[in-house]
Simulated scan of single mutants.
Amino acid sequence: MGIADLPLLGQIKGRLNWLDERQRVIAQNVANSDTPGYAARDLNQPTDFAAALRNGAGVRMARTSAMHIAPQGQQARFESAASPDSETTLDGNSVVVEEQMLKMSESRMAYDAAIGIYQKSMQMLRMAARAPGR
């Protein structure tokens, strides 16, 4: 098994690929910010906790100790509120450059965090592979 086959590094690689693609989509939105009729796009999160709970109907809260608070309902409930992604101008363009810059900043911070985790993981692997006493 090679280093690239480690699950953690595979997940980091997947996250970096998703962030790279999101940056591309955001850049495309900014490039088309003056194009009449252009609708802003964004990628969905690769993992959505609420969706995972909805899809896994068998997931239930359980009281495993008498000291735990009793669950109000047997199923965890999440409610989502619809919020407009952005404004639409008179020419039909829905790109708000400020929102796109915020999304780009969020993606950059997530990218930096993933790179940091990758670097720390590689440091730990090097340390584990090193001969004792070196």
Rank of each mutant, 00 (worst) to 15 (best):
123 Q>I: 10
70 A>K: 14
84 P>Y: 02
108 R>V: 10
75 Q>L: 04
118 Y>M: 01
122 M>G: 01
129 A>H: 02
72 Q>K: 09
91 D>Q: 09
89 T>E: 01
81 A>M: 14
94 S>A: 12
90 L>T: 05
77 R>N: 04
107 S>I: 11
97 V>W: 10
71 P>I: 05
78 F>N: 08
124 M>K: 05
81 A>Q: 12
102 L>C: 06
86 S>M: 11
100 Q>C: 06
112 D>C: 07
95 V>E: 00
115 I>C: 09
85 D>W: 10
104 M>W: 01
76 A>D: 04
67 M>K: 08
119 Q>D: 06
94 S>L: 12
110 A>V: 00
120 K>W: 09
87 E>F: 13
117 I>Q: 04
122 M>S: 05
120 K>G: 05
79 E>P: 04
92 G>E: 07
129 A>I: 07
94 S>C: 10
78 F>A: 08
76 A>Y: 06
88 T>L: 00
115 I>A: 01
102 L>D: 14
79 E>S: 13
91 D>R: 04
110 A>P: 00
101 M>S: 10
70 A>I: 09
91 D>H: 05
121 S>Y: 14
94 S>D: 07
75 Q>C: 00
108 R>A: 15
68 H>P: 07
84 P>K: 01
96 V>W: 06
71 P>F: 00
82 A>C: 02
66 A>N: 14
116 G>E: 09
99 E>W: 06
80 S>M: 07
74 Q>T: 11
72 Q>M: 03
109 M>S: 09
99 E>P: 05
127 M>F: 15
87 E>C: 15
102 L>A: 14
123 Q>E: 14
66 A>K: 13
72 Q>D: 10
89 T>Y: 11
87 E>V: 11
110 A>T: 04
76 A>I: 03
119 Q>A: 06
129 A>G: 06
80 S>D: 03
71 P>L: 06
121 S>M: 08
99 E>S: 12
95 V>W: 03
106 E>P: 10
106 E>G: 15
71 P>H: 07
130 R>Q: 12
101 M>D: 08
71 P>G: 02
103 K>C: 01
95 V>C: 06
84 P>W: 00
67 M>V: 13
126 R>M: 04
118 Y>K: 05
87 E>P: 15
83 S>D: 03
84 P>T: 13
117 I>D: 01
106 E>A: 14
101 M>F: 15
103 K>V: 04
115 I>L: 14
66 A>S: 09
94 S>Y: 10
75 Q>A: 04
70 A>L: 06
70 A>F: 07
84 P>D: 07
89 T>R: 06
116 G>C: 01
70 A>G: 02
82 A>I: 05
129 A>T: 13
96 V>A: 13
104 M>P: 08
120 K>T: 04
81 A>H: 00
75 Q>N: 00
113 A>T: 03
100 Q>R: 08
70 A>P: 06
121 S>K: 15
75 Q>F: 09
121 S>D: 04
108 R>D: 13
127 M>N: 03
120 K>L: 11
94 S>P: 02
102 L>K: 09
71 P>D: 03
98 E>S: 09
112 D>H: 13
79 E>M: 01
98 E>F: 06
